[in-house]
Design a protein around this nucleic acid. Structure first.
Lengths: 347, 347
DNA sequence: TTGTACGCGTTATCAA
DNA sequence: TTGATAACGCGTACAA
């Protein structure tokens, strides 16, 4: 931003034309209605002066800012950076800036940031925040404000969303554990205030049932958050019961890491005495000690699709699918999930 | 953003006053020059209508957008999310939004984004991009545009920056290795187009010299980037030499991970046959297999200080220190760095 | 083909 | 104490 900005008026003066002519030359569809020679003069002047239209003034006039807002529940969750990167890349490639807000899973912060973003006239919203209260979304729906849910589902058919196939993902994880001989399988679930948390728990339950296993209440521990610390606490509760499971399904990878810590603290050998499966496949999950067996979620693709979908919505392009459910894939790394040692008493 | 935005004019009408009065009530310093009863009417109307000033119009008028721009070299480098989070928190606490740009270490993208951010009238810039060409910064300096370098040094005394003490950090790492009996110590350096890369290599060299060890050319391999892949390739070159080092200092943790991979591929036992020390202490470095011995860089603090410094600069507050060099700390995790097995032929 | 006039939503200044 | 006016920088009808 130079000391004194070069405005459209400066360019107009330099090219000896009226500002509106400059605008027409620079934004005009096709080569319509402007003399080639005039156009050349204007273009030259603009270039020479280094003219760049103020996005502020432009936004005020056009009611478009070419800015996307993104609500992230927790940027330090390694699942998100690849998504953000994909969104940023996709957005910039189409001329959109990205404004980031880290909600820290606080619904009050979410509400605040939503206001802030609205005040800033972002053209649309990517919501990857877990605890988004439905009330918040209701407001956006009412105003017909363009938004896309990322890594998060919705009951409302009208909402656009891009999410992993949580049910199938959990089914893959369950299939793996059952194949390894596990019968007493527990779940460290995510917060049930989030669709991710709910869908993964439900998915686990359904998959277990299809294997004729019942998920008893004492085999489920609900974590307060998707963090390692919360996961650790939830896992502790689960593993200290009189008859702990031989394997646990975790709602995400961070919770799996917390579970791992809890297991170690209780002197449970992983995977000999306890198998653990994560969800998400965060970057470098393979380099952990031990490498995490987990369900892969296509982070980059989620970001690309969500951004593409949002931009299509903003620009009025047709939307083929309003709801993208992406395939997950079990990644067996062998070291956090192993065959069950003994026949369990259950089932 | 409601269907039709509530403007200051709507509020004025509802309160039966002139728009300028509304503005005065809402922004006016102190309770100056406005009748309590008028003020009450206006406040009530604003609240009732849910009025929120347009930041666009406001920015146009005030030449301030309360927006910070941030250039990140690579958001998927785990060192950055904690920094971004700290910046975001600090900024929002003072009323600033954060616009993120992922430069992917491409100087062309950097230049582009700089333009974009300038077009958007960000009030200041946080630059955590490694390859920022000095030409780019020169432009900002010339325009006296507020910016702060993060995790990156500068030769120019005039520039504001917040960075770790790379020299001391490397000295700590060298001290550790020497204490463990290593004499033939190599370096997988970062790109020498970055101050981080240069300072850490120089720091290593100086520290080795102070231990009466010379860093020979064949013991240095320069990585093309700060990523694991680039680090892997650089480490391969270093470790395949006829007389490889017994220990390596890596320019950052991702390079250390690449080095680890290279060592494994060459059937070198870590740490028995090769000790590795990283730099940065990325989140969960302790959970890696093996846990990484590394030099801790205070990521959160860097973010907080950088944001604070930038906002002070923007708001014209006095800046006590223009250059913050933060303490590093060696984190010995024992499993990537161990005593040298045999007396080496060198030194 | 180009220029004129106006409005986008605010706020600062000046007048009343 | 409040209202009127202008200006921030741009784009778009409409007129010339």
């Amino acid at each position: 931003m130079p000391e004194s900005r070069v405005t459209i008026i400066d360019v107009a003066r330099a090219a000896s034309v009226h500002p509106s002519t400059v605008s027409r030359v620079l934004n005009g569809r096709a080569e319509l209605s402007v003399l080639p020679e005039t156009r050349a003069r204007v273009v030259a002047a603009a270039k020479r002066l280094g003219y760049r239209p103020s996005q502020l003034a432009r936004g005020l006039r056009l009611h478009r800012t070419f800015t996307l807002g993104m609500l992230i529940s927790n940027i330090t969750n390694p699942l998100f950076p690849p998504i953000i990167k994909a969104v940023d890349d996709t957005g910039h490639a189409r001329g959109y800036n990205l404004v980031l807000c880290n909600t820290e899973d606080k619904s009050e912060r979410e509400a605040t940031y939503l206001q802030v973003l609205s005040d800033s006239h972002v053209d649309g919203l990517l919501i990857a925040s877990s605890f988004t209260a439905d009330a918040t979304l209701a407001g956006l729906r009412r105003d017909r404000f363009p938004f896309v849910l990322v890594n998060r589902g919705t009951r409302r058919g009208e909402d656009l969303c891009v999410q992993p196939d949580n049910a199938r993902g959990m089914a893959q994880a369950v299939g793996h554990l059952v194949e390894l001989g596990h019968r007493r399988i527990g779940v460290v679930a995510g917060p049930q205030t989030t669709t991710t948390g709910v869908e993964r728990l439900d998915g686990a339950r359904a998959a277990l049932r299809s294997h004729r296993l019942r998920l008893e209440d004492e085999l489920v521990s609900v974590s307060e958050g998707f963090s390692d610390d919360a996961g650790y606490r939830a896992a502790r509760r689960l593993l200290r019961t009189s008859e702990p499971p031989t394997a646990v399904l975790c709602a995400n990878d961070l919770i799996a890491l917390g579970t791992l810590r809890a297991a170690r603290e209780l002197d449970l050998d992983v995977p000999a005495e306890l198998s653990i499966v994560g969800f998400g496949d965060i970057p470098r999950a393979d380099l952990l000690g031990p490498p995490l067996t987990t369900v892969h979620v296509p982070q980059h693709e989620m970001g690309v699709r969500a951004a593409t979908m949002l931009i299509a919505l903003i620009e009025g392009e047709p939307i083929e699918r309003r709801r993208e459910v992406l395939e997950t894939q079990l990644v067996v790394r062998g070291s956090t999930a192993a065959p069950a040692q003994v026949a369990t008493k259950t089932a």
